[in-house]
């Protein structure tokens, strides 16, 4: 049974405190997906906020065909996909511009490598990126990704395959 089912039922009954517990439980993972998809922490927070509000409004129609977490991941992924598709390519992304104080050479290099990786992830198509983020940054299983994205298992594997290949080629030029 879904570990969230009692809180979901209470929230569906209009209990906002129960919904607050659900937000507390899931906000970090939902935020991580949005950040991976959008690149900008502010955009990601906006997407997470709208995701939970949409979930609250949609609770009366949510009939536990999937777990609450799968359902909420589907909402945030769709929201981010729509945002990414409508965004102009020239708009800057901040996820790869994070900078800290200069540190030892090794630390700087590790940070540089992560920056390159983030940029490469943001260079994937939105669909490839969604699949990659869910699988490799969020650790979701194939079957759950099928449910979240509403596509077939072969399509998930194919997107993932292409995404990994793109990243491997992009990253391989850095020693």
């Amino acid at each position: 049974m879904d570990p969230d089912s009692t809180l979901v039922a209470l929230a569906r009954s209009g209990n906002a405190n129960a919904f607050e517990q659900l937000v507390r439980r899931h906000q970090v993972r939902v935020f991580r997906i949005a950040l991976g998809m959008l690149g900008d922490p502010r955009d990601a927070e906006d997407a997470v906020q709208e995701t939970f509000l949409q979930a609250w409004r949609g609770l009366p129609r949510f009939r536990s065909q999937s777990t609450f977490s799968t359902w909420i991941y589907r909402i945030v992924t769709n929201r981010c996909l729509n945002l990414r598709r409508s965004r102009k390519p020239s708009q800057t992304v901040l996820w790869d511009q994070e900078s800290g104080a200069p540190g030892p050479g090794e630390l700087n290099e590790a940070r540089d490598r992560l920056r390159v990786l983030r940029r490469a992830i943001l260079g994937l198509t939105p669909e490839q990126r969604a699949t990659f983020v869910l699988r490799h940054l969020e650790g979701r299983g194939y079957e759950e990704i099928v449910e979240i994205l509403g596509i077939s298992l072969p399509a998930v594997k194919s997107r993932l395959h292409r995404a990994r290949l793109e990243l491997a080629i992009a990253l391989s030029e850095w020693k």
Binding site: Q27, V28, R113
Partner: peptide, 18 residues
């Protein structure tokens, strides 16, 4: 490494939603 990086939304997010 990227997967293991801690990521936290701002503490205000929960309050804004609620």
């Amino acid at each position: 490494r990227l997967r293991a990086e801690p990521v936290q939304p701002s503490p205000e997010l929960l309050h804004r939603v609620m």
